[in-house]
Structures are given as C-alpha cells and as structure tokens.
Design a protein around this nucleic acid. Sequence first.
DNA 1: ATTTAATACCTAATTTTCTTAGGTATTAAC
DNA 2: GTTAATACCTAAGAAAATTAGGTATTAAAT
Lengths: 119, 119
Amino acid sequence: MYICHMYSSELIKGTLKTIVLNLLKDNNKMYGYEISQKVKSMTNDKIQITEGALYPTLHALEKQGDVTTEKVYIGKRVRKYYILTDQGENTMTERVNELSDFMKTMKFLLDLDTSAQNV
Amino acid sequence: MYICHMYSSELIKGTLKTIVLNLLKDNNKMYGYEISQKVKSMTNDKIQITEGALYPTLHALEKQGDVTTEKVYIGKRVRKYYILTDQGENTMTERVNELSDFMKTMKFLLDLDTSAQNV
DNA sequence: ATTTAATACCTAATTTTCTTAGGTATTAAC
DNA sequence: GTTAATACCTAAGAAAATTAGGTATTAAAT
C-alpha cells in the first residue's frame, strides 16, 4: 500500500494556475489564504500551496485579465478577493481540459489503466 | 470537444524522470533517442521530450544510481544504453505510485470524477 | 497580561527543471 | 551530393516553484 504524504514539489509544478482558476469557478469569490486552506483541506494536506507560489500566481492571473480583485476590510485586516472574469472562465476550461487529457495520456504511458486502478 | 495538440510545457515538468524510469522497467535497456521516439509515438506526438531535457535527466539518473549505462557501437555510431538498477526500480515504483496518487487527487480537486470521464 | 498561533498580505534570492539554440558526427534516402 | 534521420552532447536563458524572510491584526493559551 502507498502511504500518503505530501507530494514531491515537482508534481505540483505547472498545475497551480489550473487549481486556482478551477476553485474560483466553483466559489466565485475567494481570497488567497482561503484558497491555500481550501486546497489543503480538500486534499488531506497532500497539496499545500506555499504563499511564495500562490501570491505571485494570483498577481499574474490578475495581470493577464483572468481575475479581478476586490479589497474587503474585516476590522483592520484586509482581505483581497479574487473573482473569475469571462476570459478567466475560458482559460480555466482550456487548462482543465488540457490537464485532464494530459492525465489520461500519462495513465496510458505509465500503464496505469489496465485494471481497476480508477477507484 | 477538446482538440489534441502538444501539451503546454508546464504540465510535463516534474514527470520526465518518472516517464523514463517507467519505460526502462518495461524495456530493460533503452538509449536516449529511442526513449524520446517511444514517448512521441506512444502519445501520438502529444508529449515530445526535448533532447535538452532528456540527456541531462538521464545523466542525473545515472549519477544518483538509478540507472547504469552500456555503450554499444553500431558501425561507427555510438549508442548509450540505459539499464535500470535495483535502486532505480524502487525509485520508479515510488515515483509512479506518487504520480498515480497525485492524479487521483487532482481529479477530485478539479471535480473530474463525477461522471464517465475515465474512458 | 503576554506570548503564541492563526489569519492575511507581500517580496526577494535561490533552486529546479525545463526550453531554446546551438554543436559534432554517422548513416540512409532522394 | 545534399537533405533527413539517427545519435550524442552542452550552455544560456526562462519559468515556476521553494525558501526565507518581512508586516500586521486577531484569537487562543498560559
């Protein structure tokens, strides 16, 4: 049996934008810290997005027009919400489809689709 | 419908060693050029390993003891075969299991396992 | 009351891993 | 006799992460 722990960092590389965009599709309004916690809890701590990766990614998504932002003050503490744009929705769909297709290809390549592995 | 083309490079990142090790498991003896062609043909040109990525990876695998090499001359042209070591087999198993688990997690995270997507 | 942990944002230096763009040389095909 | 395919390689640069900091508010624990 494979004991679950955090994935080695190489794997997560390249999927971060896709993860963020997809979460924003389902939640329509999220802030950075919330995203990192959501991913952590949804994956049983197996994927932990570091802040050094997350914030630059969010800024890049804003710069390229896939998200807009909205600052909200909770007392004196600021929260920066990210909202998916129409363009961002298209980007999200493309990215998710590509990743989905890629995973199928990898499954075939690594011979993982021969039996009941898709549980 | 999603039109198939080459995957954006970010996705392949982090999976190259796993791909190479897994191919060596099945073929027990392969050379660099052969590996790149095999991956290309098995994935209908969707994954094309560049030589600039492949050779350094092979050298790294040799350095860390996961593969050994064997030079063979075909006429005057040299071929450098790579053979999986016992250690490499363990590494391979770990990597493949990790990637497999990662893909399951991603599928769940991206909400891709709700219908008949696993065709 | 004060320290610690959690919340919430951010950036800069470094590392890893790839792409791009070269280089050498042999052999087969046109 | 040139081009394409085979077969190896490296170095410079880019991309995307990690590591390791920084600031500040609020809740929990001692």
